[in-house]
Nucleic acid binder design. Structure first.
Lengths: 159, 159
DNA sequence: AACGCTAATGATAATCATTATCATTAAAAT
DNA sequence: ATTTTAATGATAATGATTATCATTAGCGTT
């Protein structure tokens, strides 16, 4: 249990350290806003939208601007610190990225919820498929749309 | 060769027939606009945007409205006749759907072009993954972002 | 500690694909 | 031919994101 706590703490420190490294390597500045945004993402629930993060930060920092939140989420994405989850026309969601965080999504077209799944085999096959095309893979996105077990049980119409 | 031509023609007929069936089964009307939109999609190149289709139709039907094209593309999608390709923040693209038309995309982040690929194994693994979650799959979308062989050869910076 | 440079911020306007509105037109059933 | 109402076309509205720009504030230098 202690091990887990230590490892989580180490991750958090690593995230901040990487971000600072990223900023200074590009001549960007460390600001109060950037600090609170990163901290909020570290402690928050998964996959939040820009305005959810904005609202949370507002409580403690009434002067922070929405544009600043959006801008810095994009920056954190560019820095490889967070993932961007774009599903259909929904608002973009963000979540902390870590070694084991990659996952695909099963998206229920009835209730809108999404389940995270992962398959090492699928990842490998994707790489193989790309290799055949001499294509260098940077990232990927797999979304499976359908009806989740709860909506399926309740029975009902197609959407 | 004749076989191929016949099969293509049969497909086109089947598409129109299915669409008419879809319309009448829902008390929707067959209109001139719907006819020309379907015909344009059948004869056009792959994955066109709504405004590309609009522009093509404009030449022969100067009175057709953009909203009508958008509305009916959505309708054709609901009818299961065409596929909707949404990549990032790009405009939505549409293309005729057929038994063998499903494919995933390798998307080059440098030149923006996309390559269509397909893996039966990946499809199977996806179904298996969904089955474990008691999730009924309706459709899916796999996008692999990276650098294509042409952009890779030319060497150069990351994006 | 003050200065200067300029990145970053915050408020707001702009963007842009898509959707809604609504008066008019035209399918299709009677 | 008439009636009903779905569909159309022009345009306004939507809404998330991005750009603009005057002001603020990091941060290296003096």
């Amino acid at each position: 249990m202690i091990m887990i706590i230590i490892s989580v703490m180490a991750d958090k420190e690593a995230i901040s350290k990487n971000f600072k490294k990223y900023l200074s390597s590009r001549g960007l500045r460390r600001t109060l806003q950037r600090d609170v945004i990163v901290r909020e993402i570290i402690k928050s629930a998964k996959h939040l939208t820009a305005d959810e993060i904005f609202e949370r930060l507002r409580k403690k920092n009434p002067n922070i601007g929405y544009a600043t939140v959006c801008r810095n989420l994009k920056l954190l994405y560019s820095a490889g610190i967070i993932d961007e989850i774009k599903i259909g026309n929904q608002k973009t969601r963000y979540e902390l990225k870590s070694e084991d965080s990659h996952h695909d999504h099963l998206i229920c077209v009835k209730c809108g919820k999404f389940i995270e799944v992962f398959s090492e085999k699928i990842e490998e096959l994707q790489k193989e498929m790309a290799r055949k095309e001499r294509f260098i893979v940077l990232r990927h996105k797999l979304e499976i749309y359908g009806i989740c077990k709860y909506c399926g049980e309740k029975g009902g119409e197609r959407s």
